[in-house]
Simulated assay, not measured.
Amino acid sequence: MYDYTGWIVEAAAGRDKGGVFCVVGVDQERSMLLLADGKRRKVANPKVKKLGHVLPLTDMEHPFDHPTIQGLKRGTPLSDRALRRALAAFKEGNTLGER
């Protein structure tokens, strides 16, 4: 499975539908994404979702260039506060209705 770590996604199914999350890891065995937003879902206890239940807001062609996300891709430990700030910066720069 491809490494989606660092992608910003929107939940398309479940009780968190419409929520914006960052992919903090990938469960290779079950082909699931580990999602966190730093508030409801902490980095220490990420949400597990199937790939088909999220809509990518960033990808390889259009990455979100933020120091926190770059650190996550390199394997640097991530704090919930830093993740919240990165997602807030993403939301300020992008309108979720326009993709």
Rank of each mutant, 00 (worst) to 15 (best):
M60R: 14
M1G: 14
M1V: 14
K73W: 07
G52V: 15
V23K: 03
Q70C: 10
G19D: 08
L78W: 00
L78E: 00
E61W: 10
P77S: 11
L55W: 01
D59I: 12
A89F: 02
S31T: 09
D65C: 11
V43A: 04
K39G: 02
Q28T: 15
A89L: 03
V9Q: 02
S79N: 04
V48L: 15
E98L: 15
P63W: 05
A13C: 03
K47T: 10
K49E: 11
G38F: 08
H62P: 00
F21R: 03
D65P: 00
R81Q: 15
L35T: 05
D80K: 05
I8W: 00
R15Y: 09
R15N: 12
D16H: 15
G25T: 07
K50D: 02
K39Y: 10
G14V: 06
S31Q: 13
H62R: 14
H53D: 09
G14M: 07
G75S: 03
P77V: 12
V26T: 13
D16L: 15
D37L: 08
K91S: 05
A11S: 13
D37R: 07
M32Q: 14
L51S: 05
G18V: 05
Q70G: 06
A11I: 06
L51A: 07
D80R: 04
K47G: 10
R85G: 01
M32P: 02
V54Y: 05
G71Y: 02
V26K: 07
A44D: 11
L33W: 07
V43Q: 02
C22W: 00
G19S: 12
G52P: 05
T76A: 11
K17A: 11
P77C: 12
K17G: 00
V54G: 03
L35K: 02
G71N: 10
I8A: 01
E61F: 12
Y2T: 13
P77A: 11
A89W: 01
A82P: 00
L51H: 08
L33P: 10
P46A: 04
T68K: 00
A44V: 12
I69Y: 01
W7T: 03
P63L: 08
W7F: 14
L96N: 05
Y4F: 15
M32Y: 08
T68Y: 00
